[in-house]
Design a binder for these strands. Structure first.
Length: 336
DNA sequence: AATTCGTGGGC
DNA sequence: TGCCCAAGAAT
């Protein structure tokens, strides 16, 4: 059964630039950051340009956060870009500029959790690690457990199943564990998909507990996993970040002005002003176009919350250079 | 354990 | 159109 999946991978795997002998461990790590909750097709062009600009961790570590966030573009979850940047700095600081090899060392990096640590150890270094991502969870839920979907959150039982399936090193050829991990993941991505699985193309359809059971449907009453989007703070954060990315390099008043113009053209941007009091910072955001666009009940408060959140997360910062007499107009920009 | 955090394509 | 989903991590 495992051989059938590995053989299928040999025939059917996508040719992705972060796979294979040509890819560096850094390239693998970058790809894993970008692929967190983001589809491959959207990652490809950004990864390529990223590796051209910053071919080593040291190259990225020397870059400004603002430029890193711009290069991240519209991949989503921009905090991942900051964490990748911080990981690059940690790799330089603690590991001599080389991506560490072990699961524990990788796990110590910011933005690297259990999945990414195992994935990089496995895919970049060939270590025998138990990789469990959303694809692998779904494949094994069907193949082994006979249910349409895995549990809402990763369970011990799932990890045990995955661990049992990972072959010993050289169990069926060199790098057996890594090949198994990537093969199951690819099977989930291309064949054993969340919606409309292509069982007719599946190399192990004859061994599948879910197929044997007649492909039972998932429970109907499963809770919503996706947050509403329209009109949320999150949507506003995204709109503000888009404005800030569109701004030029280091922010000064002139550049913010250009950002405001760009935003006005699109109908979604604007100039944010803050009133910096003694403490805590009270941010008054003035932005009528955004309010009208989203037709929000309390748009100004919402924009204020979004901006404060972005600053708290290090995705934006205030330039208080114009501050005087306890009150100032400040410029919001990407962080240095 | 449940939430929060972007974005865009497919159905 | 609205909803679901995509190589998760941090809290």
């Amino acid at each position: 059964m495992r051989c059938a999946i590995v053989d299928w991978y040999g025939r059917s795997a996508r040719d992705l630039p972060w796979r294979g002998a040509g890819a560096s461990a850094w390239g693998v790590l970058v790809s894993e950051f970008m692929l967190q909750q983001t589809p491959v097709v959207r990652v490809l062009p950004v990864w390529t340009e990223w590796m051209r600009r910053w071919p080593t961790p040291a190259d990225l570590a020397e870059e400004s956060r603002a430029e890193v966030l711009r290069a991240w573009g519209r991949l989503g979850y921009p905090r991942r870009a900051l964490r990748l940047h911080a990981s690059a700095a940690a790799i330089v600081e603690s590991f001599g500029g080389e991506v560490p090899r072990t699961y524990e060392e990788l796990l110590s990096l910011p933005g690297v959790g259990t999945y990414t640590a195992a994935a990089v150890a496995s895919f970049a270094f060939g270590e025998r690690e138990v990789v469990v991502d959303t694809n692998i969870r779904r494949v094994e839920a069907r193949l082994v457990s006979g249910v349409a979907q895995p549990a809402a959150s990763l369970t011990r039982a799932e990890t045990d199943v995955a661990a049992r399936l990972v072959p010993e090193q050289d169990g069926f050829g060199a790098d057996s564990a890594a090949r198994w991990n990537i093969a199951v993941m690819e099977l989930g991505a291309l064949v054993c998909t969340a919606r409309s699985p292509k069982c007719v193309e599946c190399p192990v359809v004859g061994d599948c507990a879910w197929v044997d059971a007649g492909r039972p449907a998932p429970p109907l009453d499963r809770p919503r996993r996706t947050q509403a989007w329209h009109g949320t703070d999150r949507q506003v954060r995204g709109a503000v970040m888009a404005v800030l990315r569109a701004a030029g390099g280091a922010a000064d008043v002139a550049e913010l002005g250009s950002a405001g113009e760009v935003a006005a053209d699109r109908g979604v941007g604007g100039v944010a002003r803050s009133r910096l009091g003694v403490a805590p910072t009270v941010v008054e955001v003035v932005y009528e176009p955004l309010a009208k666009l989203y037709a929000l009940g309390a748009p100004q408060e919402q924009l204020e919350r979004a901006v404060v959140g972005l600053v708290a997360d290090g995705l934006a910062e205030w330039d208080g250079a114009a501050e005087s007499q306890g009150t100032a107009e400040a410029i919001l920009r990407l962080p240095r």
